[in-house]
Simulated assay, not measured.
Amino acid sequence: MTTDATHPTVTDEAVNSFDGAPDPRLRELLTGLVRHLHAYVRETGLTQREWERAIGFLTATGQACTDTRQEFVMLSDVLGLSMLVEEVNARRAEGATEATVLGPFHLTESPVREPDATIDLAGGGEPCVVDVRVRSDDGTPLPGATVDVWQADGHGFYDVQRPDTQPPGNGRGLFTADAEGRVRFRSCVPSAYPIPTDGPVGTLLAATGRHPYRPAHIHFIASAAGHTPVTTHIFVAGGDYLDSDAVFAVKPSLVREFEDIEDPEDPALARQFGLSGPFRLARFDLVLERT
């Protein structure tokens, strides 16, 4: 390899090595990756020692991945890449629910739940009722839509993080919308929580002076025939870290009030969910774009 003006550089040679790739999109992705990585090395003057540390960091990131932990997803999240991919691919009709990151904890299949079931199997958190209406972007309710739900408990942990204190499937549920396109379930009010910091991603955050916290939220994947599925959250209004989410996923349209219900206007709703005292109520629409 030579690097004078009349001969190809190592970048040219690496890019040209993919000329024979039969898949044109694969060729486009790989050649673009090589050009940007090589430009980064030149612009920053990356040293051999820094390159070795980067390789070690990526190796450790892969080694930290398990069946219940996805360190690479967390790395993508804290670098803003996950949210950027969402934004680049957004083709949202006016009024349709905005998408956000999947996150690293959608790792197990959510158990099928009956209508109005509870997903809070461990208890101990502030009780709430979530009342969701799934509809099309033209306003039509979507009966039979599926809504996959997962959230942390009232202490900020997912079931896979604390299998000794949370039963499998706690905070998770797969619901089918009724004839009105409605899904309702009982849960606990989620709390803000730190993403796991005992691995390479935590080391990166500490080294850069960044906090690891996410604002309180509930995850959803909603899908219906003839519509584009949406992966999204709702965030608890008034909570901490709404303006500094560690994974950059907060959008104003997804922040929702969890109303304090001290003296239920609808006692039947409270009785239906086995609630005798105060609770919180979140009502909102999940609006899907027609395909």
Rank of each mutant, 00 (worst) to 15 (best):
L30I: 04
D285N: 09
I195K: 07
M83W: 00
S223H: 01
T3E: 14
F258L: 13
P212R: 03
G181A: 11
T140R: 13
R42C: 00
T9V: 05
L121K: 09
T232F: 09
P143L: 06
V183G: 03
A206C: 00
A179K: 11
H227Y: 02
R53L: 12
G123Q: 10
P267L: 11
T140P: 01
H227C: 05
E43S: 13
R92N: 05
L288T: 02
Q70M: 04
R256P: 12
D12S: 02
A64N: 14
H233W: 01
Q272I: 00
Q161I: 02
T31A: 08
T140M: 08
L281A: 05
T44R: 11
F284H: 04
R162D: 11
R25S: 00
T203P: 01
A224R: 04
V112T: 14
P115T: 12
R256E: 14
A145N: 02
V147N: 04
V73G: 01
H36M: 06
P8E: 12
V149M: 02
P252A: 12
R113C: 15
T31F: 04
W51H: 06
D245I: 15
A246D: 09
L81T: 05
A122I: 04
D67L: 14
R214W: 00
T108P: 02
G154L: 07
R49W: 00
V101C: 08
F105M: 13
A152M: 06
R184I: 05
F175L: 07
P163Y: 04
M1A: 11
P22R: 05
F157N: 10
S253V: 13
T6M: 12
S17A: 15
S244L: 07
V15R: 11
A282K: 08
F273Q: 03
R25T: 12
D260N: 14
F175I: 09
V41Y: 00
L46Q: 09
A90P: 00
N170F: 06
D263L: 12
D120M: 07
I261G: 07
L242I: 09
D240L: 15
D198A: 14
R182Q: 11
E180P: 04
A249D: 15
A5K: 10
D4P: 00
F220Q: 02
A207H: 10
D137S: 12
V129I: 15
G199V: 08
G56N: 13
V15I: 14
F57V: 10
M83F: 02
R283E: 01
V34G: 03
P194R: 11
S17F: 05
F248S: 15
I195Y: 11
G125D: 12
L37P: 00
V147Y: 03
F273W: 10
V250K: 15
P200A: 15
A14Y: 03
W150P: 06
P196G: 03
G139Q: 03
F72G: 10
A246Q: 09
R184W: 10
N16Y: 02
T100D: 01
T165C: 13
L269P: 07
T31N: 08
G171M: 13
L174W: 09
A14L: 14
R69A: 13
A21K: 01
R91V: 06
R271T: 13
A270T: 06
R210K: 11
A222G: 12
Y241P: 05
V130N: 11
N16S: 10
Y213T: 03
A207M: 06
F258T: 08
R92E: 06
D159P: 04
Q48A: 07
N170C: 14
V201R: 10
L254Y: 15
I55Y: 08
W51Y: 10
